[in-house]
């Protein structure tokens, strides 16, 4: 049990516990904060997997972007005067069945499979090879992603700004 293992277990447990908090929390604000720690835990797992660029991207985009968007959504859709904690829960039994069956199958398959032993490369920076790949092998998806972001930007603005007066 070396430091790598200990670090892995700490961050894996942090991630899983935070995800449990996201899914089972009654209060939507607590769920959003649990999501913050889940994202941080996943970023730490990226670091352990020698993906430094992705870890930074994860923190910048998920924590700095998506989580702020989610908190804004919570703020704008929860009425301020009657702070109703949306505790609605649908169809627990089929959900437990489906999620449990899938989790059991996945974990069973993953733990019984004999993965080929990997010769681990030493840690090295990944920003340069990722950038090189984006400009060579992945240049078409890269451009498509930029178009998608533009479309999503304009579409989100148009959808969100539709005036109230326009409804019948």
């Amino acid at each position: 049990m070396n430091w790598y293992d200990i670090t892995f277990y700490v961050f894996a447990i942090l991630t899983v516990v935070s995800a449990v908090g996201v899914v089972f929390s009654r209060n939507i604000v607590y769920a959003a904060f649990s999501l913050l720690f889940a994202f941080f835990g996943v970023a730490a797992l990226y670091v352990l997997l020698s993906a430094d660029f992705l870890a930074i991207t994860q923190i910048l985009l998920y924590v700095g972007g998506i989580l702020v968007l989610i908190v804004f959504g919570v703020m704008l859709t929860t009425r301020a005067q009657k702070v109703e904690v949306k505790r609605g829960i649908l169809s627990v039994v089929p959900a437990v069945l489906i999620a449990g069956i899938i989790a059991g199958t996945l974990v069973g398959v993953l733990t019984t499979t004999k993965w080929p032993a990997a010769n681990l490369s030493p840690y090295e920076e990944t920003a340069r090879p990722i950038g090189a790949l984006l400009m060579t092998n992945f240049v078409l998806p890269f451009e498509l992603a930029s178009i998608l972001l533009l479309v999503a930007l304009i579409g989100a603005v148009i959808i969100a700004r539709r005036e109230k007066a326009r409804r019948a």
């Binding site: 991630t15 899983v16 996201v22 899914v23 996943v42 169809s91 959900a95 999620a99 449990g100 899938i102």
Partner: peptide
């Protein structure tokens, strides 16, 4: 993580 997310989406 996947199973927890799936459970959240359903419920």
């Amino acid at each position: 993580l996947f199973s927890l997310g799936l459970y959240g989406v359903i419920t």
